[in-house]
């Protein structure tokens, strides 16, 4: 029988189905592209000489910005965008992650204004992990198509990305508890914001969403999911229920609040890495059964 230590590390060792990480890879790099490409394409707006800038990441890079000419910046932006595309299609994913990570980190350091800071905290962690560990091209990738080997994926990278994601969600819940969320109906404040601020327009128009009963329910749902889902996703018996609640929560966030798509891509797809080989096989079998039942 495996020791407790071996059971703990099992999620990070050996190999498994490559599909959850492949789906995450596509979502993550597409999210990074949606987040950064607008400012990398319209480079002369936020990254022109004399532009108003905000120092939020590397102070050293922030200071170096003035030494770079427009040609260098344009070259950096093109290389960064190409690396993001290579990451999304799974072409030399590890190199793509290193180049894309360094590129977007540099641009975010040059000026934090065109990219929302808090969506990026987890992004740096994932790029760092990808560069250190490698992987992610086991399926749905150019590399996999070219090599024609049976697709498997070492568990180290998906295990670490999952840990990073769940720690982020769990401590976001802890921060809310410490901020006194259960007693102040903070979602009531958030959902009462006027049109043109942080809410999607449709949310400001649906009166039911501003009722104290509804907002208090959202407040508690947020705390329960953020604190409860991370541990429950790791336990096989509760995984599916936790995953449904977790996905509904992040779908609710992106549907109601103006948060960057990158935020959704990282957190919603990150939880799929909790699925093990048995879960994926069961889901595939269930979807096949459903399709045959409806005659497709």
């Amino acid at each position: 029988m495996a020791s407790a230590t071996d059971r703990f590390f099992a999620r990070f060792e050996g190999t498994g189905t490559p599909y959850p990480l492949a789906i995450f890879r596509v979502a993550f790099f597409v999210g990074v592209a949606l987040h950064f490409f607008p400012s990398l394409i319209t480079l002369d707006d936020a990254y022109r000489r004399g532009a108003l800038r905000s120092d939020e990441w590397s102070h050293w890079l922030y200071l170096r910005f003035d030494d770079l000419g427009p040609g260098t910046l344009r070259l950096m932006s093109i290389v960064t965008m190409l690396a993001c595309v290579c990451g999304a299609i799974g072409l030399r994913t590890r190199v793509a992650a290193i180049v894309a990570g360094l590129g977007v980190y540099s641009f975010a350091s040059f000026n934090g204004l065109p990219v929302q800071t808090l969506a990026l905290v987890n992004t740096w962690a994932i790029f760092l992990l990808w560069g250190l560990v490698g992987g992610g091209s086991g399926a749905l990738s150019v590399d996999a198509w070219a090599s024609r080997e049976t697709p498997v994926e070492p568990r180290l990278l998906p295990g670490l990305i999952l840990a990073q994601t769940l720690i982020g969600v769990f401590f976001a819940g802890i921060e809310k508890l410490l901020a006194g969320w259960p007693f102040v109906n903070e979602m009531g404040v958030l959902l009462s914001y006027p049109k043109g601020f942080l809410l999607r327009d449709w949310v400001t128009q649906v009166g039911l969403l501003h009722h104290p009963l509804v907002t208090r329910t959202f407040t508690w749902f947020t705390i329960v999911v953020e604190v409860g889902a991370p541990p429950l996703l790791l336990w096989k018996r509760t995984r599916l229920a936790a995953l449904i609640a977790y996905e509904a929560f992040f779908l609710g966030i992106i549907a109601m609040l103006e948060v960057p798509p990158l935020f959704y891509c990282m957190f919603a797809f990150g939880a799929l890495l909790a699925l093990d080989d048995d879960d994926v096989s069961a889901l595939v079998a269930r979807s096949r059964a459903l399709r045959s039942r409806f005659g497709k």
Binding site: W57, T117, A172, E175, V189
Partner: peptide
């Protein structure tokens, strides 16, 4: 860099916007 700002997601919301 990922340890710089903590995990903040709307924990304290502005009252004046």
């Amino acid at each position: 860099p990922h340890l710089k700002y903590g995990h903040v997601m709307f924990n304290k919301n502005l009252r004046v916007v």
